[in-house]
Design a protein around this nucleic acid. Structure first.
Lengths: 237, 237
DNA sequence: ACCTGAACACCGTTCAAGT
DNA sequence: ACCTGAACACCGTTCAAGT
């Protein structure tokens, strides 16, 4: 009780700091942080081990493989969606409000984790009809409940679910890609040279290059989302 | 002239067959075929070399790196779009017809190369405003030309380009993923166990599972595309 | 000119061994 | 119970050497 917690070795000055102890959750969180910092391509069992002050082989006590590690990281990050106080898992002010909140919550999540989001969007899911970026039985159930309760037929609710997933996937993937995220493999070693593309022979690209480079992602998202909701409204019984 | 083309060694029965000779185009095509057969994760310089009856090191005479190889494969596959006789690079029957043909051409391409498409969708492009799945200055120019010529303002043409890319990316990525494609890393070694997910506690998923598993991708695509065109029509000056 | 062997610095993963 | 050292079968990439 009275003994201060200090071992004879003191702090050994390992890679990042003296970390408390290994467990699955800590490994997954460290993995997410690693990917956000260096990109998914740089995540190796060995480097993650070093980051945690441990040999790579120790990770296998908690994580059966690198693939499973990546799946776990995706889960850990997507868990934030359940914690987002602005996102409801069942509608409180109508289905449109529910969908708007869900869409905005996912967008916040993507922007907060631009390097991890491509994994959320592209890792295989447990069943083919569990579509990214929703990815979990729980959210699909929640989605279908919200819409059928609001008067959508079974088929209309399923169609809405598909349209909603495609919409989010396309928009958010392109948005994080534009942030320079690691959508697929990338080299962050080279910070992307200015790369002044040669636009000779492309008069419209020359004329519109400034407009093309403007960041209109927020307006884009809001307008497309609104248009999607209008379309879904037409599906309602 | 009279000599039959046969060397003293005869056919040595290498990996796939006695291939003519190495050059970049042949390597890229073999790479595309390899990915379509085994998935991107299994493509290594060494295995591709073997497939071509050559040591891995020989590839480096034509391809500076694996990254460059992947980029080249994407280009080779997307070149099919230029060869598609149903896709016009400039409008012949109005901008809607042009966009419909372009969208359908890309969908055909995705369905013909389900394993390569995720690379088309996720590899970094040469400029951030060159968005997948269009990916090339030439097509972006073509797109913007078609719309501005049809009376779209510069800003409206750019907005339409963005909406069109997001739409295609979301739909086609989810469609090939549902085909079991390698959207991100995957193990094709295991042919995906039946994986009868436990739906206890998810009453709607239970009730809707059949509907959720139905393939409605074509109708989905057509309806969403039509709705997109309606939306773009409203942007026109 | 074109391909290869050997080498380097990495991987993921297993397993007997240490504490 | 938890971590490690050594080993295996792979990687991508370089380069001097072979034909």
């Amino acid at each position: 009780m009275s003994e201060p917690e200090k071992r004879d070795s003191g702090d050994r000055g390992t890679a990042t700091a003296e970390k408390p102890r290994l467990d699955r959750q800590r490994i997954l969180e460290a993995g997410a942080a690693f990917i956000e910092q260096f990109g998914p391509r740089h995540l190796s069992m060995r480097r993650l081990g070093t980051q945690l002050g441990v040999e790579a082989m120790s990770l296998y006590r908690y994580v059966p493989s690198r693939e499973n590690l990546l799946d776990g990281i995706v889960e850990v990050v997507i868990d934030d969606l359940y914690k987002d106080p602005e996102v409801y898992s069942e509608p409180r002010h109508g289905w449109q409000d529910y969908l708007l909140r869900l869409a905005h919550g996912l967008r916040r999540l993507a922007l907060a984790h631009p390097q991890v989001f491509p994994l959320i969007a592209t890792r295989p899911t447990e069943a083919p009809w569990v579509r990214p970026p929703l990815r979990s039985l729980r959210w699909v159930e929640s989605f279908l409940k919200a819409l059928t309760s609001a008067g959508f037929s079974d088929q209309a609710a399923v169609d809405a679910y598909r349209a909603f997933s495609s919409f989010l996937l396309g928009h958010l993937l392109l948005e994080v890609a534009a942030m320079g995220a690691d959508v697929g493999p990338v080299d962050e070693a080279e910070p992307r040279p200015p790369k002044s593309t040669d636009l000779n022979g492309y008069p419209l690209l020359q004329r519109l290059q400034e407009r093309l480079s403007e960041d209109r992602s927020e307006q884009e998202f809001e307008e497309a989302l609104e248009s999607l909701l209008d379309r879904l409204e037409a599906l309602q019984a």
